[in-house]
Simulated scan of single mutants.
Amino acid sequence: MRHQTGVRSAFAVVVAAVVLLGGQSVVPAHAAPTPTPSPSPTSAKMKNAKEQVAQLEDEASQVGEDYDAASQALEESKQRLAVLQADIAAQQTKVDALGEQVRAIALDQFRNREVDTTVQIFTSGDPETLLDRLSTASKVDDDINATLAAHEAEQANLTDMQRTAAAEVSALAAQEQKLAAMKKDLQDKVDAAQALVLQLTNEERAALDAAEGGSTTWSPNELDGVSANARALGAIKYATSKVRGGQYVWGSAGPTGFDCSGLMLAAYRSVGISLPHSSQAQSHVGRPVSRGELKPGDLIFWYHPIHHVGMYIGNGKIVHARNTRADLVIQSLASYPAPWAGARRVVG
């Protein structure tokens, strides 16, 4: 009983001290500091997923850039082969024509073969006629030799062209195999990133999108009174018109699917300007401009080495095919976190 009374007394003293101190807690000098709470499993999961998705998408973007460059090289090879095959057909016609001439001459000689020239000289009763005939025969021989030489040279040219075409066909097959392997690697990375995203909640996905800058509103009226080249403004109108229904499709340049450089290609193609289908190749088009000199229609590049491109549309905003999750977006330039790599003015 005394023990309980003592405990109550001690408790009363503590309560009184708390009241006197205005509710402040009294911590003994020897007490350990309160530990910092560890991150919740949800935030750790979000951070890990964000990092993995960002890495996979960056790797996919680099592979996609190589894929675009390889695709363009393949298309150029096909065009070269088509020209070469047309040249081969023309050369074959020339060789065939010369071959007909050679066969006609040989046949004519066979039908009109004559006695040995020495015999004719000793048996001819008309030396002048014989000399005329010999002169004519010499001229015919010269023509025959020239025709034969021409046929031989043209046949050699044809053979060289055919060898070149065969090498081109072999190179095309190797390029197509390389493209197929790159496409599989690209799709594997995209699938892996999408699988990670699917594990996130809607709130976590929204946070992931916000980390890339989200999106912003834009109206064509924002171009009213803007000082920019008319064709650059036309390219902007095309690119921004594709945002609502466009999708991110690797290696595509429209009309509804685009990758980053494909959107720029299609936008400028709509106003009669040709661009290569590669952000690295596009980074050499036109002339360089600084960030402070940007005008609507300028192309902006990110990463080192370059593997992403978008278009400045004025008022601090850009339009680009961001990735397979976001598709095509308009956002503020300042909100896009990728490392700046430069800008180019295509026209104006």
Rank of each mutant, 00 (worst) to 15 (best):
Q4C: 00
Q4D: 03
T5P: 07
T5F: 07
G6C: 13
V7K: 10
S9Y: 11
S9L: 06
F11D: 09
F11E: 13
V15H: 12
A17I: 01
V19K: 12
G23T: 05
V26Q: 04
P28W: 14
A31P: 04
A32R: 01
P39V: 04
S40E: 12
P41I: 04
M46E: 12
K50N: 15
E51Y: 12
Q52H: 12
V53R: 01
A54P: 05
D58K: 13
A60S: 13
D66P: 01
D66Q: 13
Y67I: 10
Y67C: 02
A69P: 01
S71D: 01
Q72T: 12
Q72V: 15
A73T: 07
S77W: 07
V83C: 02
I88D: 00
T93V: 15
V102Y: 13
V102W: 03
I105R: 04
D108T: 09
F110S: 07
F110E: 05
R111W: 06
R113H: 10
E114C: 05
D116K: 10
P127G: 12
L131N: 10
L134A: 12
S135Y: 08
S135P: 10
V140P: 04
V140T: 03
D141A: 07
D142T: 08
D142V: 03
I144C: 06
I144V: 11
A150D: 07
Q155F: 12
A156K: 03
L158I: 09
L158P: 00
T159P: 00
T159C: 09
R163V: 13
T164I: 08
E168D: 14
S170Q: 02
A171I: 02
A171Q: 07
L172R: 10
A173V: 04
Q177F: 02
L179Q: 15
K183G: 05
Q187F: 12
D188K: 02
K189V: 06
A192T: 03
Q194C: 01
E203D: 14
A210H: 02
G214A: 07
T216F: 08
N221Y: 09
E222Y: 10
E222T: 09
L223T: 10
N229M: 09
L233P: 04
I236Y: 07
I236C: 09
G246Q: 01
G246H: 05
Y248V: 09
T256F: 08
G257M: 15
G257A: 06
S261V: 13
S261Y: 03
G262K: 01
A266K: 12
S270C: 01
L275F: 14
Q280R: 11
R291L: 08
E293K: 15
K295G: 09
K295E: 14
P296H: 06
P296A: 03
G297C: 05
F301P: 05
F301M: 10
F301N: 00
Y303L: 08
P305A: 11
H308I: 14
H308P: 06
G310E: 03
G316D: 00
I318H: 04
H320W: 14
R322Q: 01
T324F: 14
T324R: 12
Q331H: 11
L333P: 04
S335G: 00
S335N: 03
P337L: 09
P339R: 10
W340D: 04
A341T: 06
R344Q: 05
V346P: 00
